[in-house]
Design a protein around this nucleic acid. Structure first.
Lengths: 161, 161
DNA sequence: TAAAATATTAAGGCATGGCTAACATTAAAG
DNA sequence: CTTTAATGTTAGCCATGCCTTAATATTTTA
């Protein structure tokens, strides 16, 4: 279905992600900025952009801005989301040092599956809701939540294990 | 301190891990078995083994068994432990399909830090202990546990949030 | 002790991804 | 407007990593 799209190298994912972030932060992505972000030379960016263009992930006219196609944007935001959720997991859940977590998220973002991403997202949602509603018998409740999509309050009378 | 040791490529880590596992399962690791495990040719294993030997991670005499040095064993078991803990996390915590989890653990094992590994290990220990003792106000308790190394019972009277 | 199985070496291929240097285009400043 | 500075592009090249085949060497086994 997606051709090369789901076989993209980490580096290419990094390029997409960088373009995505620059666009969000500054409105546009230019070759020079991408290069600066990734600490490579402009010529390297150029090769990458050509590659991504050939695969329908970016739009780029000579000397112009680099923009993501719909598909490119989908992939980029997916990578970014994986990064973010894992960063959250590392810092909020495992309570790791944010600086280390940030670095680590950069490698893990390329390694985790969509499904893991989705589960982590649900986990956080579950925790947030759980804390609002009452005590989180976290694992049990999360399991139920995953299975049924619903949450169950913690019955006071039970052993509350 | 460790030279190349902490800059080992994923592939080299895979070789070490495979040797580690074969040794545990069958008593010895032979070139052919490593090749079969990793689905590469023996000659590829040979190059890898030479590389690892040069870096003091394996011991290998021509036509003999491949054995891990102390350092090689340390790294291998570290990788394997990362694999295992992440597999547990994916299956027990996020409740992912074991087959997918197994595959995913294979990539993540190379990407997670020692510290993340340690925290995950503690998380599981914490959960196990928590379930024995009483209810796990998981996040709060885990945070205390990480900070102090001790666990705190869930007070019934409090809102039990 | 010859055949089969296994291991090693040598040579090379290919993918990835970076670089420099020369050139082209665009933007800015006089 | 035109020169200069900044930016982008292209071409050619190189390093790394990791795999392969084919030829050779050693060990095992029948």
């Amino acid at each position: 279905m997606h051709g090369i799209t789901d076989n993209l190298s980490s580096k290419m994912e990094d390029y997409l992600e960088t373009i995505f972030i620059l666009k969000k932060e500054t409105g546009v992505a230019r070759v020079g900025e991408i290069a600066k972000s990734l600490k490579v030379k402009s010529s390297s960016v150029n090769s990458a952009v050509n590659f991504l263009k050939e695969h329908g992930l970016v739009i780029h006219e000579k000397y112009g801005y680099v923009r993501l196609t719909k598909e490119g944007d989908r992939i980029a935001s997916e990578v970014k989301s994986k990064h973010d959720i894992f960063f959250r997991f590392l810092t909020e859940f495992l309570m790791l040092d944010p600086k280390k977590a940030e670095k680590e998220a950069c490698s893990i973002e390329h390694a985790i599956s969509k499904e893991t991403f989705q589960r982590l997202t649900k986990l956080f949602k579950f925790l947030e809701d759980g804390f609002k509603e009452g005590k989180p018998r976290i694992l049990e409740k999360f399991e139920i939540y995953l299975k049924t999509g619903k949450r169950k309050k913690c019955e006071r009378e039970k052993s509350c294990r």
